[in-house]
């Protein structure tokens, strides 16, 4: 397939493919220090041996040129997200059988979002960014920073379960992912906020607080869509917390 330099690419946003390099530690890395090695398409193809069949952005911008704060505070139309999320749900539904599997799939989608969102949000805090080492700290981070970054408002409530030491609950009266979704009666137990639960689970896992997060609907009079995210930490976390306290 030839690389065609038609006008359409000038306006496209394709990011260039970075060819593989051999960064083996035992070979001496002799670099010409005269120029910074920003790859142009010609050098890139010579490095990879055969001509690359991927297309390059005409402006030769890489993902490393994009500033991370560019989308800070940017707003997304709810309708666009709703359509995309609806397709995501339909896509998952075709590939699974059963409500539990569907929730797991949505959870997996949210998981990859959460891993990236965590690093991005902590980076955006700049020099004052810190790693959370306490359970309460990471939960506060989720209910405030994370929720505000996605929904522009903090989560509605954070509670600790009285019966179980390892369970915490985050409530959201009206999860935005569920706004336009009406679950049919035969799939009553499904809550598409499993996607949001996946985001929370990824944030907790990446910070070394392994947990399982599930979304449960608890409709009440004023908030028919109220959802509670149940966070169940693993034993490791509890042991560590106990060490902190002592």
């Amino acid at each position: 397939m030839e690389r065609s330099n038609t006008d359409s690419f000038r306006h496209s946003q394709y990011l260039p493919f970075s060819p593989t390099t051999s960064s083996h530690p035992s070979t001496p890395l002799a670099q010409k220090h005269a120029s910074l090695p920003i790859p142009t398409p010609t050098t890139a193809s010579s490095l990879s041996g055969s001509a690359s069949t991927l297309r390059y952005s005409q402006s030769r911008k890489t993902i490393y040129d994009r500033h991370l704060n560019r989308s800070k505070g940017a707003e997304l139309s709810k309708a666009s997200f709703a359509f995309l999320f609806g397709e995501m749900v339909q896509y998952a539904q075709k590939r699974v059988s059963g409500i539990q599997d569907l929730e797991k799939k949505l959870n997996a989608h949210g998981y990859s979002v959460g891993q990236r969102l965590l690093e991005l949000l902590v980076w955006r805090e700049g020099r004052s960014g810190k790693r959370e080492t306490r359970v309460l700290g990471i939960l506060q981070f989720i209910t405030n920073t994370l929720w505000r970054a996605i929904y522009n408002k903090p989560a509605d409530a954070l509670e600790k379960s009285r019966d179980h030491e390892d369970e915490y609950m985050i409530s959201d009266n009206d999860p935005m992912v569920n706004t336009y979704i009406s679950v049919p009666k035969e799939m009553n137990q499904l809550n598409c906020a499993a996607f949001q639960a996946g985001i929370i689970e990824a944030v907790l896992d990446s910070c070394m607080f392994p947990a399982r997060v599930t979304a449960h609907s608890v409709p009440n009079e004023t908030w028919p869509g109220k959802t509670v995210f149940l966070i169940k930490f693993e034993q490791v976390v509890l042991d560590r917390e106990a060490e902190f306290i002592s």
Binding site: A82, G86, Q93, Y180, I181, M187
Partner: peptide
């Protein structure tokens, strides 16, 4: 357009059974 078309569980041209739309 909101509560029927954005509902992933609604099949186009089928009877509308969307609780959010009714509400």
């Amino acid at each position: 357009a909101d509560y029927v078309m954005k509902n992933p569980f609604y099949q186009i041209e089928m009877p509308i059974r969307c609780e959010a739309f009714d509400r």
